[in-house]
């Protein structure tokens, strides 16, 4: 899974990049997008990572409540997979064991694992290596209910503008709205794993996704931040219930290498 995710993108990402390469009018933007298409081709043919930042290993583990895991602890198994994948796949080891002492762990472990209990008897693992050029530009905003939809729009558009060229545009933007401080951040991360051709099932959220994407692409930032109308390839929103006093909004930014691999056991 580690190797697959780092060598090739999903069909939705490829389609979005191909479409952008056709519709972009800025000459420098067109040039950058053509190079990104060429980069994907070389990565797959030469079995070399699309980006040298092969990320911190983020794993969503959706565990069916009828599943019983035997033979060891699931998180040890996930970390062993990351260790083998990153070593055998010639992927970069980008993890330090302590945020202050900062010594590289040498095998890209530990993974960041988010567990969720779900009905059923399946175990679904979604592996999303996350690069930090874009992760560093992500934000959480604890808005007031009175800030409303306009507050949400300002937060998302402001976060993308602040990210600018640092986040390797064209980006994919994951937005979490509602919940609590940590829940909205997790929703924003999970939003990045949803296919770009699969809008929110909620009509008002879907409309907001479309409006925000159009607004971001009017900013002129463009591919590599050098100008153009392709600033974001997609924007997905996840939302949930929240408190009467709050309106949490999280913006998790991903670069054009929005990678993931899924397995159901």
């Amino acid at each position: 899974m580690c190797i697959e995710a780092n060598h090739s993108l999903g069909a939705d990402m490829r389609a979005a990049l191909d479409k952008a390469a056709e519709t972009e009018d800025s000459p420098v933007g067109k040039h950058v997008l053509a190079q990104l298409q060429e980069n994907l081709k070389i990565a797959e043919e030469d079995r070399i990572p699309i980006c040298q930042d092969t990320g911190m290993a983020v794993v969503f583990a959706d565990i069916g409540q009828d599943v019983h895991i035997e033979g060891g602890f699931i998180e040890d198994a996930i970390n062993e997979g990351v260790r083998q994948g990153y070593t055998e796949g010639y992927l970069r080891k980008s993890v330090v064991g302590d945020p202050i002492e900062r010594v590289n762990t040498g095998d890209n472990t530990p993974a960041i694992v988010h567990y969720r209990m779900v009905p059923g008897d399946e175990l679904k693992l979604t592996f999303c290596p996350k690069g930090f050029g874009s992760e560093n530009m992500s934000r959480v905003f604890m808005l007031k209910p009175a800030d409303g939809v306009q507050g949400i729009k300002d937060a998302v558009i402001g976060a993308v503008a602040d990210a600018g060229p640092n986040a390797c545009p064209p980006m994919v933007v994951g937005v979490g709205i509602g919940g609590t401080f940590e829940k909205c951040a997790l929703m924003a991360k999970r939003a990045l794993t949803r296919s770009l051709d699969e809008p929110s099932p909620l009509p008002h959220i879907r409309a907001l996704e479309e409006e925000l994407l159009a607004e971001i692409n009017k900013s002129g930032l463009g591919p590599a931040g050098l100008g153009g109308k392709t600033t974001a390839l997609g924007l997905n929103i996840e939302s949930c219930a929240t408190h009467i006093a709050g309106l949490p909004v999280a913006v998790n930014i991903c670069c054009h290498v929005n990678r993931h691999a899924v397995r159901i056991l």
Binding site: I48, Q52, G133, A224
Partner: peptide, 25 residues
Amino acid sequence: IGGAGALLSKAIKSSETVAYADLGA
């Protein structure tokens, strides 16, 4: 170009470590 690591690697013909090998990547 950020994120074009595979493409850019094609233009690199040789690499040698000058210092700080313990830092890995």
